[in-house]
């Protein structure tokens, strides 16, 4: 793996608290010595926040698609009528 990818992996391990004590200590030391690494950690964390946001958006779209099937397809008419009758 490229050196920069190893760095990405190390940051990932750091963010998820993986690895043995020795690796963790070395990484902590590198963080103190290398301000650029610290900034990479924060950008990588922000990236994972975006991935989380993206994941939620996709799952919501999948759920909405199930909703549309249930409330539009004739096969689910019984279920639909039961729910809608509550709100009459």
């Amino acid at each position: 793996m490229r050196i920069s990818l190893n760095k990405v992996e190390q940051i990932d391990n750091h963010l998820f608290n993986r690895g043995n004590t020795e690796d963790k200590l070395i990484f902590e030391a590198m963080l103190i010595l290398d301000p650029a690494l610290k900034s990479q950690v924060s950008w990588q964390k922000k990236t994972l926040d975006f991935v989380q946001h993206y994941g939620r958006k996709k799952i919501k779209a999948e759920i909405e698609s199930v909703h549309r099937q249930l409330f539009n397809e004739p096969a689910h008419r019984c279920f639909r009528d039961k729910i809608l009758s509550l709100f009459k």
Binding site: M1, S4, L5, V8, D12, W43, Q44, K46, T47, F50
Partner: peptide, 12 residues
């Protein structure tokens, strides 16, 4: 990891 690096650079 390639994707993570690529997206991270885009985010930045």
């Amino acid at each position: 990891y390639k994707c993570l690096e690529k997206v991270r650079e885009t985010v930045k």
